Amino acid sequence: MAQPVARKTICVIDGQGGGIGSTIIKKIKELFGESVEIVALGTNAIATAQMLKSRANRGASGENAIVQTVPRADVVVGTLGIMLAHAMMGEVTPRMAEAVCGCGAVKLILPISQENVDVIGVSRDPLPHLVDTLVIDHLTPLIRAHP
């Protein structure tokens, strides 16, 4: 008897109002529905609530939630700020950034930053185009690959 294939776990991390994370989750749900598990991890409760409204399967807020959850993820998705201590107006703590950078998950990072950081060699496409590239070109091959 064949074993059921485990769903990939995708952690979407966002802060402040959760708008970028919500946009990402909507696109993932549009393409994959319930074939993946999306965990919304907000640096604050407002961001988490917004991402849950976009149909994330589960959600949690704050430093400890992020530190404890990302090591179990298959994929971590967010903006450049989730890897920078003190980013998002201080919402990303050093422990959060360390957990994201140090976890074994594939990290799909949008080159968007409010931290006076320019990533050289990347386009400045609008957010919807970046999300399409992230989900269609980078996440889809990971989801469709055999575990």
Rank of each mutant, 00 (worst) to 15 (best):
residue 22 S to Y: 01
residue 22 S to V: 00
residue 22 S to G: 15
residue 24 I to T: 12
residue 24 I to H: 08
residue 28 I to E: 13
residue 28 I to V: 15
residue 28 I to M: 12
residue 31 L to G: 11
residue 33 G to C: 05
residue 33 G to A: 09
residue 34 E to H: 13
residue 34 E to I: 01
residue 35 S to A: 15
residue 35 S to V: 15
residue 36 V to E: 04
residue 36 V to G: 04
residue 38 I to S: 01
residue 40 A to N: 07
residue 40 A to K: 03
residue 40 A to Q: 00
residue 41 L to M: 11
residue 42 G to S: 03
residue 42 G to I: 11
residue 43 T to L: 08
residue 43 T to G: 11
residue 43 T to D: 02
residue 44 N to I: 04
residue 44 N to Q: 07
residue 45 A to D: 15
residue 46 I to K: 13
residue 48 T to I: 01
residue 48 T to Q: 15
residue 49 A to D: 08
residue 53 K to W: 03
residue 53 K to H: 02
residue 53 K to C: 05
residue 53 K to M: 13
residue 55 R to Q: 15
residue 56 A to I: 06
residue 57 N to R: 06
residue 57 N to P: 09
residue 58 R to V: 06
residue 58 R to L: 14
residue 59 G to M: 02
residue 60 A to W: 07
residue 61 S to K: 11
residue 61 S to P: 06
residue 62 G to F: 12
residue 62 G to C: 06
residue 63 E to W: 12
residue 64 N to L: 11
residue 66 I to G: 03
residue 66 I to C: 09
residue 66 I to E: 03
residue 66 I to L: 11
residue 66 I to D: 08
residue 68 Q to H: 08
residue 70 V to R: 06
residue 71 P to M: 00
residue 71 P to D: 01
residue 72 R to W: 11
residue 72 R to S: 10
residue 73 A to V: 07
residue 73 A to F: 15
residue 74 D to I: 03
residue 75 V to H: 07
residue 77 V to M: 14
residue 78 G to L: 03
residue 78 G to Q: 10
residue 79 T to W: 00
residue 79 T to A: 07
residue 80 L to A: 02
residue 80 L to Y: 11
residue 81 G to K: 02
residue 81 G to Q: 05
residue 84 L to D: 01
residue 84 L to Q: 12
residue 84 L to C: 11
residue 85 A to P: 13
residue 85 A to T: 04
residue 87 A to S: 15
residue 87 A to G: 04
residue 87 A to D: 01
residue 88 M to T: 05
residue 88 M to A: 14
residue 88 M to Q: 12
residue 89 M to L: 14
residue 89 M to D: 08
residue 92 V to F: 10
residue 93 T to E: 02
residue 94 P to F: 05
residue 94 P to A: 06
residue 96 M to N: 06
residue 96 M to K: 10
residue 97 A to I: 12
residue 97 A to D: 12
residue 97 A to Y: 01
residue 98 E to Q: 15
residue 99 A to Q: 05
residue 99 A to W: 07
residue 99 A to G: 05
residue 100 V to K: 01
residue 101 C to V: 14
residue 102 G to E: 14
residue 102 G to V: 11
residue 103 C to Y: 04
residue 104 G to E: 14
residue 104 G to M: 03
residue 105 A to K: 03
residue 106 V to I: 09
residue 106 V to K: 12
residue 106 V to N: 10
residue 108 L to M: 11
residue 108 L to D: 12
residue 109 I to G: 08
residue 110 L to C: 08
residue 111 P to T: 02
residue 112 I to Y: 00
residue 113 S to E: 00
residue 114 Q to T: 00
residue 114 Q to G: 06
residue 114 Q to I: 05
residue 114 Q to F: 06
